[in-house]
Design a protein around this nucleic acid. Sequence first.
DNA 1: ATCCTCCGTGTAATCGATTCCACGAGGAGG
DNA 2: CCTCCTCGTGGAATCGATTACACGGAGGAT
Lengths: 347, 347
Amino acid sequence: MASIKDVAAEAGVSVATVSRALNGHPSVSEDARRRVSAAVERLGYRPNAVARSLRTDQTRTLGLVISDVMNPYFTELARSVEEEARALGYSVIIGNADERPDLQDHHVTTLLDRRIDGLLVSPTDGGSPGMLGAARAGTPMVFVDRWIPGVDVPVVRSDGRDAVRDLVAHLYALGHRRLAIIAGPAATTTGRERVDAFREALGAYGLDLPDAYIGQGDFQADSGRRVTEGFLDLAEPPEAVFAADNLMALGALDALRARGLRVPDDIALAAFDDIPWFVHTDPPVTAVAQPTRELGRAAVRALVDRIEGRPGESVTLPARLVVRRSCGEPVSPEPPQSPSPVRRSTP
Amino acid sequence: MASIKDVAAEAGVSVATVSRALNGHPSVSEDARRRVSAAVERLGYRPNAVARSLRTDQTRTLGLVISDVMNPYFTELARSVEEEARALGYSVIIGNADERPDLQDHHVTTLLDRRIDGLLVSPTDGGSPGMLGAARAGTPMVFVDRWIPGVDVPVVRSDGRDAVRDLVAHLYALGHRRLAIIAGPAATTTGRERVDAFREALGAYGLDLPDAYIGQGDFQADSGRRVTEGFLDLAEPPEAVFAADNLMALGALDALRARGLRVPDDIALAAFDDIPWFVHTDPPVTAVAQPTRELGRAAVRALVDRIEGRPGESVTLPARLVVRRSCGEPVSPEPPQSPSPVRRSTP
DNA sequence: ATCCTCCGTGTAATCGATTCCACGAGGAGG
DNA sequence: CCTCCTCGTGGAATCGATTACACGGAGGAT
């Protein structure tokens, strides 16, 4: 592979001039510029990004450590992150943690060793030593989707509280009273928040959320299956099940089908995170949709701000309820705008 | 960030000794080794992978340029690639080409600039200049899923011919005679092969595949929708539609639903590439399943073989038909093993 | 004519690792 | 006691870029 020296020799100038010509430095004569371009062309020269990174101490690369790539929500997030990063002149290296803290740590370490310019993380747990160390050491960092309380890092996420309230209103209107939730891991913020939002919304209707109706899942399909089976074995099974992510909803659907139960006639189902396939499941699944694309873009912008010395702010975007048929036939033809009886201030 | 010099100073030895100690070189005294470890520990030192790569001319990184990450098939492929690579001590940088040749080229170039050790590609088109150049220049490279004829690079893929024959047999047994296909881009091998396999299987039943029953798609949901609408507008619409990938099947499902058609009663549907969601669509979709995980692993092994100087062989794995309800009720309780009347030699 | 600026260019230091080569100490063998 | 190895170690070159600094020449001001 041709190096800058070869180009210099070919163009009959010094490496310094080649470098300057290539980087658009002003003080290079038109003549030199042309000869360099010609030499580059002839040799098929491409600058070695590794050498450049070593010298400049920047890789123009972002690390993205994601909880689970197989989850369509995160796939879409990853995609929008890459898009926005590319638009800003950065590459992205994705690490898939598979909801495993040890893998998450492995990726964080590897990315840091590669001297990425900044790190985007949706933490699997309360924070591995490697990650906390990086945050403390001042590596530009932004949490996306999930975050770790007490760590001073901008957070880009979506707030599902209103949408969950809309969902409970929707379920209530359809006559459901015994509502259960398949929760995510308590170690994650999204795991806890969604349960809290659900309980709070229930409270507004005078319903409570007994422990038996809180199933502990791990954001994977299998756990959705297992928890749902537990619900069905209860003396008084729930009338509606809310899965805290789309994969667990898939598992729940599996379990219900295995028992020969019909949705929504025998039991209602809703999910957090909307995905294209929910339109085509049997029945189409009512879900809380996050503005995934915007989340990814906002996260990248916040991170690049940090990298380039600007503040880099936290962003919270609202989620919204998408009503389909899995909780019962929609009551009215128009989508419920905000049917909750307990209004929040909405200026 | 602490460098090897800091470690050397802290341990009271030279940088050469630190390097040797860290890389398990034999001729380092037990004493020096201990002092280096202690210094590393105290400083929280991590070797700079960028500097190491520059010197050793290897990054221990693989590039994966994928046609479309949002396609669950490719997501799973990417995941298994990363897993196997990690097991072999490599990292993976994924580039999403989004079925766009220009983006594919962008990623290939970027990855090459970063001096990745090897490249895994599922080409979007007939081969962009950058990619062909890399192949010619001797960059270790392996094609996965799709390939480019005439380029001397190992190919890891799955052969759907038998499975497509099984599918046609299945459709025939259910009484369908007018069979159409939503094809992938003719520029891709998988796009062409699946049509060829389909036509060949049809031939075995004395059926032919008129041009009107070959819809030109691009492996994206929208094209599946569009092509399906075209089929339905025909004077004699097909009785069964075979989508050459899962996303186009999703689009087809959309279009059918929009027209108020029932699957499989009004029209049958099948897809290439099986995904978890097909179990839960309405109706569950009959599909040709590729051994995706094995494909990813085999591809990485072939590539690493090349990188490390071993031959690196092409691999072709068989796909298999998974019958569900979207083509009609399965005729027999047992899965069709190979119901095709035209037997191939199967020793 | 002299001095000062500015412009274009080249030389060389630098980034953080790996690794070739040389060197001194110590042990074995003659 | 001398020579020859072996072992552990350090000095310095090297990878391919960027960039501070120096320098020569041209042109303008005095």
